[in-house]
Design a protein around this nucleic acid. Structure first.
Lengths: 193, 193, 193, 193
DNA sequence: TATGAATGAGCCTTCATTCAT
DNA sequence: CATGAATGAAGGCTCATTCAT
């Protein structure tokens, strides 16, 4: 009733929500969306199935929230790179941020990549993220243009593919993958010029 | 032994088998392994659920057959690249074959990538393919060594990531993705030296 | 913890559980374990198939619960006989109890005997009951020893066989079988001495 | 075409028939009627499913043939006992024959006992065998009457129960069960008088 | 907010049986 | 006589979702 207790309540709600989301992310990553069950998510999150449905109206809604929050964090982390003026510096910051995100949210990327590969599920998300990807490619093109590349679009596509390929390999090899070494290799490649 | 001409029988069996495998590939690609049902596969392949089980002992076995056949074809297509002596030429042939395989079997790659991302299902396949991937990376390292790279291992990792990233992007954008342009960009990059 | 009165809940659970077990016992008795289906059990018990699986994790588990509960009751009923000191009196009490159990739980005995005859299913239960049977035979041997039989082991085996044979015949002929008359015949046989 | 070859053919038919029946008996004994499948029977008998259906029109028919043949053999073996005049001698021969049959056809008895316990399947057989059982009990009554028992019917029931109980125990303990010892115990019991 | 009983559809799989050859 | 491809009906089991409390 008091503002204090309602604040506490809101915090608890938020904690439960995050608990569900975190557990679901783990299980989606391990078994895929169809392979993970709400029952297991609830049990592992330490709450009842019914309660899970108080927080999310469906399994699909849980997935949507995961993707939404994942992208919110990614955008948060990447905005830093946009402020850098010097193109060489910008590329370095961009790489550093990208690798940091990759490393930090590897479970999210696993789910996200799996999702994107499944037309049936991805369909509902597609439109929401189209602009995002186009924006990324666009800023890559601008970057490589200002770095003086002959064919900045081709280079941007290669660059994007390389980043996603690294992410994929990192997800799969996880603790063994030499992310740092690969990052430095990339930085060197674009500094040499 | 058999009252039916055994040749005719074998052909029928092979046709039905391929029909099941092809349909399953499509549906696994569209909905993922867990999302696709044997019922739908059978219906779309024009046969009864029971018959599908006459040909494959489980859903898992269908997936295994798909992966097995897919890799058989890939190995068939890639062996050509191994015969080329000149390193620059070899890299070009390698790229050409890789892109051809990517284009030809994009549905297979979609399923395969989705599979690799799902620890639960992948587990059973892992061992079978470990050697294959290690072999690929190994031959990439050799190639870049003979091309005179300072750190051929780092370059090989980047190269592999780039190829897989391109494959991923191609799968996702399919008819729009400028595969040819990207391929030429890559060839140019390694020819400049 | 629970929003429902937990007492009420426990009672409901127990009632549903017993309903399932009772119906399953009937159907296992009528059609055998493999011949009875969960669907039919559920329908006849007035609940959904899904709910049956909420209470028991498998058909096998239902059977196990039936056997477990059956034996619990039998042990409860037979312990009385153990307290009797005088051997003649003990044998009479033993017979009386045995025949009472036979009559009361004839459906259970039908299922149990069917089970014991099917190596595939019985396998999983064997160990659990070995000690029980050995104990029974052992106490029969002691009894006939204290009754002064020359070869108490041989007599115990015959006695056990007779009891099980009577049980079998009673199960099969049910309302017509002259259980009382047979019991008296047995008592007379061992009193004559 | 020649009488010789048609005889051969008949013998082959008979052999195949017996092969199916024998294999089915084994599997029914191990898994029960519902638990054994025609597919497994055919495979284990070394022939095709289709061929099995040339010999028996249904799974039920196989079971019927097993029971029919089993009883034919039992009747064949038991007729010897009927010729004996002296009651004491007759009882001994009867016991010896019974135990021989038990030992020789234990798999059959396992199936038969399991069958008799399952009202649903047994129903169809009941009438066919009612006379047989009544006849057996009747001859037991006569026997014990001529042996001078006060209540020959009660003794006959006990005797029958003992025999069936021994059979049950023998089936279950198989190689360990001291059949010989038990048989001698029984003979002694009835000789003492 | 929180629980867990309850449902019903659907999934993988098995199997008795039929039939073209 | 003999084969095995083919079917269709269950059967055991799972699971997203709802709902009374």
């Amino acid at each position: 009733m008091s503002p204090r207790s309602s604040q506490q309540l809101a915090r608890m709600r938020e904690e439960t929500r995050e608990k569900i989301l975190g557990t679901a992310l783990q299980l989606f990553a391990r078994r895929g969306f169809h392979g993970a069950s709400i029952g297991e998510i609830a049990r592992q999150a330490g709450l009842s199935k019914g309660l899970a449905y108080h927080y999310f109206e469906s399994k699909q809604a849980i997935l949507e929230a995961i993707i939404e929050e994942g992208f919110a964090e990614i955008e948060r982390m990447m905005t830093v790179a946009l402020d850098v003026e010097d193109p060489h510096q910008k590329l370095v910051v961009l790489l550093e941020r990208t690798f940091a995100v990759t490393e930090q949210d590897s479970e999210f990327w696993r789910v996200f990549t799996g999702l994107i590969l499944q037309p049936d599920i991805w369909e509902g998300f597609q439109q929401r993220f189209m602009k995002f990807f186009e924006g990324v490619i666009g800023s890559f093109v601008d970057l490589f243009a200002s770095l003086g590349f002959e064919d900045p679009r081709a280079e941007a596509l290669l660059f994007a593919a390389t980043l996603d390929g690294i992410m994929l390999h990192f997800i799969l090899d996880q603790p063994e993958y030499p992310l740092e070494q690969v990052k430095n290799g990339l930085i060197r490649r674009y500094q040499k010029r």
